[in-house]
Structure formats: C-alpha cells, structure tokens
Design a protein around this nucleic acid. Structure first.
Lengths: 222, 222
DNA sequence: TAGATTGTTAATCGATTAACAATC
DNA sequence: TAGATTGTTAATCGATTAACAATC
C-alpha cells in the first residue's frame, strides 16, 4: 500500500467515510460519486478526491466509486484486516462498559484479555474475555503479541501501568484516563478519549450560541 | 467577553490548557510563561499567545501569566461558570458508566435527571440523579430549562429521541451513539464521542508504524 | 535600569478548494 | 459518441510560526 505522510485531518475523516459507506452498502447503493458523497457528509467533492488520492486510485472516470470496493480499501488503510490484539487494563466502570457494549471485532481488533486488581473479578470471564490479575500482566505481554492496550485504570496508577505496557512491546494506548499520557520523546502511539475535553468544547459552543442571542437582542433592543 | 469567531482548532486546545493549569496550580506554580507552557504541552509559545489573544489579554509583559487567573479566564471562556443543566437519555451501559464515574460537576454542568424505558430503573435514584420514564421526558423538558442532552440510547431510536430533544429547547447533544446526528441545516450543536472512530484512527497509526518498519527492513535487507 | 515576556503584525506553511485534462 | 466524473495540478484560504515594538 501507498504510504506517504498523510495529514491528521485526512486520517480523522477516514472512519467517517467508512461509516457512511457501510450505511450506503446496507441501503443497497452500489456506486457513488464524490459529489454525492460530499453532499451526504458535508464535504466538498474536491476534498474527498484529494483524501482518497493519498492512498491510491479507487474510482473510475465517468462512473464514480464502487461502494463495496471503496469500503474495503478504506478498511485496509485503517488496518482493520490486520487482526491486532488488544488487552484492557482496569475492568471496572468505563472498562467494564466497553467490554459490555463496544464491539472491538467490528474495528478488526481482538480483545484477548482484561486485567484488574479486584479479587472478585480475577479469574472470571466476561463476554468471552478472561479477566486476569494485574500482577500477571507483564508476563502475559511477554508471551503474547499485544499491539494495543485499552487504559481504563484510575489516573493515579496510569503512568506506572503505561511504563509496563510500553516496556513490553505494546505499540499503542487507547487512553480513557483523563491525564496527558504523551511524553515528549516517547515513540508510543496514544489516542486519547477525554470525556471532559469533549463536554467542555460542547459547553463552549453552547456559550457562544447564547452570547450571540444576547448581543442580537441588545442590538434590536429586545 | 470578547466573542469573535474562533477556529475549531483553538477551541479544542482550551480544555488542554485548563487541564495543564489545574495541574500547575496543584503543584503550587503561581506564574508561567508562554515559553514554558509550550514546552510542557508540545506547542509553540507563539501559538499559545495567539490562542489566548482571541479572548483577551491575560498576561503581563516581562512576567508571563498568573496560573490561577488564567485558569479562571479559560474556565469562563468554556462556560464552566454558567451552570448549564443536562439530562441523560439511556441509563444502561455507557450511560450508566457515565453517571457512575464521570464528574459533570467538574465541567460545571449539572446533571439533573436521567431517562430510560426499563421498568426496573424507573423511579430509582442513582448518585443523586433520579431516573425517570422516557415517556415523561417531553413534559420534563417543557418545564425545565435543559441546555444539554447526553445521548446514550441504542442507535435505532437515536433519531426520534433527538427530534423530541431539539423540539423542546435543548441546545446541544453530547452524542455517544455511533451515528451521524448532524443534519445539514439543523441549528443543534452536536459533539460526537465516536469510540470506533477513535480506535480506527489508532489502528491506522499502528499500521503506519508497522509498515515503516517493514519497508526499512526491506531497504536494509533484514 | 536591564531583562523578560507579552500582544500583535507580518511571513510562512499547510490544507482546502477550484479548475481541467484524461478517460471511462 | 457525448456526458460524467475521476485524479491531479494550480490557486486560494486559513492556521501556525516568526519577529518585534511595547511595557512590566
């Protein structure tokens, strides 16, 4: 596959393309043009064609894109066909909710084990995933090829757990703790899910909206 | 407050500034320069000063920024002092995990009620938040001033629930369902938390890393 | 005062959009 | 063939970085 340096913005749009293509496929749509796709996603056709051209030529002049083919291409670009193995660390609360609801398999990721320190969880199997003692984690990492760790531990222990993970071959951390995990020179890949950052952004947009209304009312003397 | 149109990129950095300032405050740091803040966040001092200047003048030449003052300014910009009221719709799984772990109050948001259709949940109170029947929701919205809805329902019903929300004064939706909620001409504010998009991006970066290694090994004949 | 550091203007860089030849 | 639509090159736009006068 073509692998030139692709901008972050492009990469963040790829999962959206995938989701839309899945939807189109379900609807029985076989082909789509960049114009129509742009309409549905709120993007310009130019941007869509530019984005795809980072990775190859997936369309056909005068026809557009075959939905199924394009879907498979993007899935491949995202690495969904690589079967990366993941472990989850911290099976309480959000960790548990992820195991319960989130389909790792739909992203092409295999969740092979979870780790916790709570005695009542250790040794149990939840939705087919064994929950093991955190003390066993290092050994487990050494004997299994784990690419991804889902980090759901309390923030106090996050840094120490991260050291064990990165020291034992884990490539990437899906970070659900509310701390900045990225160290300046670390080669580890960190993807943050910061709920509070997300809610605060939303709060900003609400405030902006409210202030607009207020100032308009002032202007019009309401 | 100064309210000029500020780019999305700037807004997304504000919660990170806030988090860092909280950390500095806890450490007992009273003042910080844009240079030092940039070092700690991996940003240029220029960018930091540009970002702040969208909202006002919070620093002092020759001195830098007072941590506590800057923190309060950013909190205000984000609307944390406005006490927005929120409801949560769908109290199972991820919704329940949010109620259990996530501190709405720390973001300055009041979670005042949750709604569900499960009989065994209705009428109970969880962490001080009453869980009501979804059939009561419309009435509740009409008699309370709810700015934000946290959407955690199954995706099949998400669109219909959204109509009820937007039709009854809700300004913004914090969307935990895995569907595209934003309609072309809708004035509703939507903040998406798409777990699968996040994991797929991570999967991309892992794949990129692996391919780099492979191609290097090929070049060096390993 | 001299040194430090801001806020802001100008320069650079990168991302998006427009245009169009190629071709299905 | 004629019409449609791609992939790509060029133009535009916006965001980041650099520079510097103002001033604490």
């Amino acid at each position: 596959m073509k692998r030139v340096k692709v901008s972050n913005n492009v990469i963040r749009r790829l999962p959206r393309y995938l989701r839309k293509l899945d939807e189109l496929h379900e609807n029985g749509t076989n082909r789509i043009s960049s114009f129509e796709l742009g309409q549905q996603l709120g993007l310009t056709p130019s941007q869509i064609r530019q984005d795809f051209s980072c990775f190859g030529e997936f369309g056909q002049q005068g026809y557009g894109y075959n939905v199924a083919v394009l879907r498979e291409q993007i899935a491949g670009i995202l690495g969904m066909d690589r079967g990366y193995k993941a472990i989850l660390v911290g099976a309480g609360n959000i960790g548990h909710a992820l195991m319960d609801n989130f389909s790792f398999a739909e992203c092409g990721v295999q969740l092979v084990a979870a780790f916790d320190i709570k005695e009542n969880l250790i040794g149990t199997v939840f939705k087919g995933v064994p929950i093991l003692a955190e003390s066993q984690m290092e050994e487990y990492l050494k004997t299994n090829d784990i690419a991804i760790a889902v980090l759901c531990v309390p923030k106090e222990v996050a840094v120490n757990v991260t050291k064990v993970l990165t020291g034992n071959g884990v490539e990437a951390i899906w970070n659900f703790t509310n701390i900045e995990l990225t160290e300046p020179n670390s080669p580890i890949i960190v993807e943050n899910v910061h709920f509070s950052d997300s809610l605060l952004s939303l709060s900003y947009f609400v405030s902006e909206r409210m202030d607009e209304h207020t100032s308009q009312n002032t202007k019009t003397g309401k």
